[in-house]
Design a protein around this nucleic acid. Sequence first.
DNA 1: TCCGGGATGTTATAATATCACGCTCTCGGT
DNA 2: ACCGAGAGCGTGATATTATAACATCCCGGA
Lengths: 143, 143
Amino acid sequence: MTTDSLIKALDAAEAHCLERGEKLTPVRKRVLELVLEADGPVKAYDLLEALKPGPGSAKPPTVYRALDFLMTAGLVHKVEALNAFVGCSHAHDDGGAELYICSDCGNVEERHGAPLPMNAPAGFVIQRSVVEHFGQCANCRTG
Amino acid sequence: MTTDSLIKALDAAEAHCLERGEKLTPVRKRVLELVLEADGPVKAYDLLEALKPGPGSAKPPTVYRALDFLMTAGLVHKVEALNAFVGCSHAHDDGGAELYICSDCGNVEERHGAPLPMNAPAGFVIQRSVVEHFGQCANCRTG
DNA sequence: TCCGGGATGTTATAATATCACGCTCTCGGT
DNA sequence: ACCGAGAGCGTGATATTATAACATCCCGGA
């Protein structure tokens, strides 16, 4: 992600939060920036390291709170199978996404609104779905 | 699960392992039994507790090793979003399953061979998929 | 017998995540 | 201006989940 598009994404995120009546505070913005800057899924404790160039500040709750906020706002997704987080530049309020994660380069593609197979048990009402596909992206497969 | 069907499931699991040229050792069998007995997803450290009525033995690696074995054999699945494990009475060697987990009663239904939506990025080769749906089962919804 | 590999035991520690408390803002009401 | 409520955050402690590293045991084949 270029510096330019990063700035745009952050501005869009800020606008998105305002629409929802919430604030993208400095800590939250900084965490989102770090997540978006990363090449792929990023760990909470790596964010924690990145947050504290100085002494003192930045303990685990700081980063987990920011991540919770960003997830609720639809700006970040958690990759459950990796205990890691990925940014989502096109903020959306529907909870779920379908993630395609390249195990080689770490790149993550996100898809939405996938018509999931009508495979559910009779009468089961889905509230939240976790869909994560791991494999090789086109680049890494041919490279 | 009744005692009877539990015993049958364990025997079937043992046969399944033998077919694969592997051994369902006492520790592994005991862990599988505990997982199958559970109403729903069960945590590694709960298994650990259940494994040590006596002092001494049963440390984390014991249960994690058993779980790794059982997962590889297709006898147990990890619910990534819960860091928990569910038993799979009908052993299968294909890695992935689609799980429907009732948030109310904890019951888990498993589906296989779901034709996933052709939503993948061009050229992406899927090696492993995690598909977990959370919601309410028919019983809990009407009850 | 001796070796080799798989399985397990054991100690320690790493990695991930949450709790509980208190402080400081800001904002709206009075 | 003053107060009170609530959001956000700092901080210390701790809970939860998972693995590393090395020792030991047991069994089967050479």
